[in-house]
């Protein structure tokens, strides 16, 4: 009896209807999907190239813009854009790698960070110049408009699709890296590129494709985001700061770590929005600070 009253009182005190809780958890899961895909791309790039790709947010934004441009200038819709925009952004990434990044591999990480930070500013500046900052609308594809009432909450179809699509892409990436021959080349080259080259494997090509792939992941996240967030030049800058915190928490270089940390932190953010809304914008950074103090190499990172 006493316990029941206690539970009751707690519920009253918190006063949270399940719809709110589940709604925020869904929102957290969606944010987490973006964090996962983006931090996965960063982890893949960092693993092999030793470059902290600060341009990742700008390239994510570019993915969304490419989808928007394909629609407005060429009439190419969402579904083809979901394939084409990552390919186009990935190709742009390869161009960056060939012309600029590849000249920095023999230098400290810091130079790669500075270069990609500069690139991010330039890319964002160019888009801001041509498209302004007000944001461009991008329609949800017909197939995914509407939603379903699950009884306890309303689930928009497009949001469910974002969660499913990003999970598929994350798992497929994990599978390629951890379970295939190409992935074995990648893991080996991450550990000892010189020896892998001495076995006759074209490591520079592998590096170029890896960067292109990481960038394509960012572009893919951008297309997924286009119908949810408005397409605007700053969307990447807002996102990338959080994603870097996610990567710091998860630990650079672990594929599954990057994915899991992305989802979990999205959910944590959602929960915080329920229980302590004022903290939701900073909770990830608080966790980052704690992780840095306790386990500086990150939750899934290997000690250096």
């Amino acid at each position: 009896m006493k316990r029941r009253r206690g539970t009751f009182r707690m519920f009253e005190l918190l006063g949270i209807p399940p719809q709110v809780l589940l709604g925020q958890l869904l929102l957290g899961l969606i944010n987490g999907s973006f964090y996962a895909v983006l931090s996965l791309g960063l982890a893949v790039i960092f693993g092999l190239l030793n470059i902290i790709n600060f341009a990742h947010g700008a390239l994510y934004m570019m993915g969304a813009f490419v989808a928007w441009m394909l629609l407005h200038y060429l009439g190419i819709g969402y579904w083809p854009a979901l394939i084409l925009a990552p390919l186009i952004t990935g190709a742009f990434g390869i161009l960056l790698e060939r012309t600029m990044l590849s000249r920095l591999y023999h230098l400290d990480h810091l130079y790669g960070l500075l270069l990609t930070f500069g690139l991010a500013l330039i890319i964002q500046g160019l888009f801001r110049n041509y498209y302004g900052i007000s944001g461009l609308p991008y329609q949800i594809p017909d197939l995914l408009s509407g939603g379903n009432n699950l009884g306890f909450m309303f689930l928009p179809n497009y949001r469910a699709w974002v969660v499913v699509a990003s999970a598929i892409v994350c798992l497929a990436t994990w599978f390629i890296i951890e379970k295939t021959r190409l992935g074995a080349y990648l893991r080996a080259a991450t550990e000892n590129p010189v020896l892998v080259g001495a076995f006759g494997i074209n490591v520079p090509l592998l590096i170029m494709l890896t960067y292109g792939f990481g960038v394509a992941l960012a572009g893919f996240a951008g297309v997924l985001a286009a119908p949810i967030y408005s397409v605007n030049p700053n969307m990447g800058a807002d996102m990338i700061i959080v994603v870097f915190a996610v990567v710091v928490i998860g630990g650079m270089g672990s594929i599954m770590g990057a994915i899991l940390t992305g989802y979990v932190l999205g959910l944590v953010e959602g929960l915080t929005r329920v229980f302590y809304p004022e903290g939701s914008a900073v909770v990830i950074f608080v966790i980052m600070a704690i992780v840095l103090l306790i386990k500086p190499e990150g939750l899934f990172g290997k000690a250096a």
Binding site: R181, A184, Y185, A188, E191, N192, F199, G200
Partner: peptide, 20 residues
């Protein structure tokens, strides 16, 4: 190589099958 160069992130079979 002298340091053997066995890859920690690869299992024995993957190490064996690595050189093309």
């Amino acid at each position: 190589p002298e340091e053997r160069g066995i890859f920690a992130s690869l299992n024995v079979e993957e190490n064996l099958m690595l050189p093309p």
